[in-house]
Amino acid sequence: MKKEKLAWLLRCQLVLFGLAFLICAGIVLSVNTGTVDISPIEVFRIIFLRGGAGTLESNVIWKIRLPRLLTAAVLGGALSVSGFLLQTFFRNPIAGPFVLGISSGAKMCVGFVIIFVVGSYGRISNWVMVLAAFAGSMLITGFVLIFAGKAKNMSMLLVIGIMVGYICSAITDFCVAFAKDNEIANLTSWSMGSFSGAAWDDLGVICIVVGVSLLAAMLISKPMDAYQLGEGYAKSMGINIKLFRALLILLSSILSACVTAFAGPISFVGIAVPQIAKGLMGTSKPLIIIPTSFLCGAVFCIFCDLIARTAFAPMELAIGTVTSFFGAPVVISLMLKRNFRKQQ
C-alpha cells in the first residue's frame, strides 16, 4: 500500500518534470525557428541579457515570437482545463466546447461584433471581443443546459450540441451575407484560429482571466472529485449542487470564451488533452488533473503552433487544422480503448 503510493508520487513528479522540460524545449525551439534565422546563443542574449535592443532580431523575438509563444501556452492550457471542467460537468469524456456547440456560439457573437459593431465604430478593444465570445459561449451553454435537463441520455446531448452548433453557423453565415469583404476576411481568419495576433497587452489580459479561473477551478476540486460519483451521491455528501454546477459551467465558459476571443475556435484540445493528462497521471483527481491538463495543453499548443508556423513556411496553417490533425486520432483511440474495456 505504502509502496504503491510512493511509486505513484514518483510517477507524478516524473510527469511534471517531463512536461516542464517539454515546455522549455518547446520555447527554445519555437523562439529559434522561423523565417528569420537566429542562433540559440543570440536568443539567450536577447531574452535574458536584453541585448541588441532595437535590432531586427530583438524585435522579432520580443514583439512577435515570445508573445505568440506564451499566448499559445497559456491559451492551450486554458482550453484543456475548460474541456476538463465540461467533462466533469457532463460526466462525459467527449464533452468539450467545440462538440457542444459552445465555440460556434462564441463565433456567432464575435461575428456580430466584427460585422456590425466594428463596421460602424471602427476598431474596438479586446475586452469587447472577450465579452462577445463570452456572451456567445454562455448563451449556447444555457441552451445546452436546458436541453441537458430534458435529455437524460448523453448521446442525445451531443447530438443537440452538434445541432445547436449548426444553427449558430447558419446564423453566422446569414450575417456574413450582409458583410463587407474585409469584415468577412477578418471573421474567416479569426474563425480559423491563430495565435499570430498576440501582443503583450493581450497576454496580460489573458493571464489575469486564465489565472483567476484556474485558481478558482483548483478551489472547487474537492466537490469536483465527489461529483464523479454522480449528482445524487454528491448531494448526499453535503455539496450544494446548484451552486457547484453553476460555478463549474461559469469557469469553463470563461476559459473557453477567453481562448475563443483571442485565438478563435480551436478544436480537439479540450477533449484530447485532459484524457492524455489522466492517462499520464493514472488518476482523475481534479486537484492533480487541472494543473497537469494545463501543462499538457501548453505543451500541445506550443508544438502545434510551431508546426502551424513552420511546416509549410512561409505559408502559415490555421492552428485549428493542426490541433484537429493530432487531436482527433487521440480521441478516436481513447474511445476505442474505452469501448474495448467495457466489452470485456
Binding site: 469524456p93 464523479q228 454522480g230 449528482e231 445524487g232 451521491y233 448526499s236 482523475s284
Partner: peptide, 13 residues
C-alpha cells in the same frame, strides 16, 4: 448517508 440506484461510473478510480 445513501446508496442510490443511479449508475456510478467514475473514471480511473
Amino acid at each position: 448517508s445513501v446508496m442510490l440506484t443511479e449508475r456510478v461510473d467514475p473514471e480511473l478510480m
